Simulated assay, not measured.
Amino acid sequence: MKLLGISGTIVGAKTRILVEKVLEEAKKLDPELEVELLDMKQYDVQFCDGRDPSTYTGDTKTVIDIVSSADFYIIGTPIFQGSITGVLKNLFDLVHPQALRHKVMGFVANGGTYQHYLVIENQLKPIAGYFRAYVAPGYVYAHADHFNRQNELVDEDVLQRIRNLAEEVVHMQKALKAGDIHAYS
């Protein structure tokens, strides 16, 4: 099983830190798990222009292939202007909806206000619903205050939510794999 962590931003460090922490906790729960981090900072991705995803080339094709080949996901975004990043939205637009169908998604986000956690509820979960993905019941939202000056997560409640999210996505993925939900699609 391949768990892909997506850091859906090209600026800052906190989103990647959150995603990496969940991947680390998932690996502790199941050492056989294959984990990979897709850091969007490392790729020069084209804007989606509505064409068939298989016709893109270069970094754009690489990113589409990485996302499409994963079995389940931890998807992270900072919250800018009360919304997910354009980078993450563009990634969702590039990937064929069938590639995400019946796959487990867990969400992490970070922002500068305590109310921005609502972006997970009001934007990310509906997008997952469109893809007909399975969404972990919990998620992690971290405020800038939850990190120290070295960008280390120091808030114990956030760290516990990270452990809980890792447990949920691993459990859900194993249960779906055991039940072979894809046989019914």
Rank of each mutant, 00 (worst) to 15 (best):
N110A: 11
R101M: 13
L94R: 02
L88C: 01
G111I: 07
Q150R: 15
I162K: 01
G111C: 08
D155H: 08
G106I: 00
A99M: 11
L94Y: 00
F107G: 07
G112N: 07
V104C: 03
P126Q: 13
A142Y: 11
V95Q: 00
K103R: 13
M105A: 10
L118D: 00
H146A: 15
V154T: 14
R161Y: 00
V135I: 15
D155E: 09
G112L: 08
F147D: 09
L94C: 00
I127P: 08
R161W: 00
T113G: 15
T85Y: 02
D155R: 09
V135S: 08
D145I: 07
V158A: 02
L118I: 07
V87T: 04
G112H: 06
F131D: 02
E152K: 15
L94P: 02
I162M: 01
L159P: 03
V158P: 02
T113K: 09
L94F: 00
P126V: 07
D157R: 02
L118H: 05
L88R: 01
L124E: 05
A109I: 08
V104F: 07
L153Q: 10
A99T: 05
L100R: 05
L100D: 04
V158D: 02
G106T: 00
Y139T: 04
F92G: 00
V95G: 00
Q150M: 10
L159A: 13
V158E: 01
R149P: 06
E121P: 11
Y117F: 15
V154Y: 09
D145Q: 12
I120L: 09
F92I: 03
H102L: 12
F147H: 13
M105L: 09
L118W: 04
A109N: 13
D145S: 12
D145W: 12
V108K: 05
V108C: 12
A109F: 10
Q115L: 11
H102G: 05
E152C: 09
M105C: 06
M105N: 03
G138L: 05
T85K: 01
R132S: 12
H102N: 13
A128Q: 13
N122F: 14
R101C: 14
E121S: 10
Y130F: 15
E121H: 04
V154L: 14
G112W: 04
G106A: 02
Y139P: 01
K125V: 12
L124V: 10
A109T: 10
D93T: 04
G111A: 12
E121Q: 12
A144H: 03
Q98N: 12
L118R: 07
V140H: 12
H116E: 15
V158T: 10
V154K: 15
R101F: 08
F107S: 08
V95W: 01
K103E: 04
G86A: 09
E156G: 08
L91P: 06
N122Y: 15
L118V: 05
D93P: 07
E156I: 07
H102W: 10
L100F: 11
A142P: 05
G106F: 01
E121D: 15
H96Y: 06
F131E: 03
F131W: 13
R149L: 10
Q160W: 12
G112C: 07
E121L: 08
V158L: 03
G111E: 05
Y134W: 14
L159K: 15
L94Q: 01
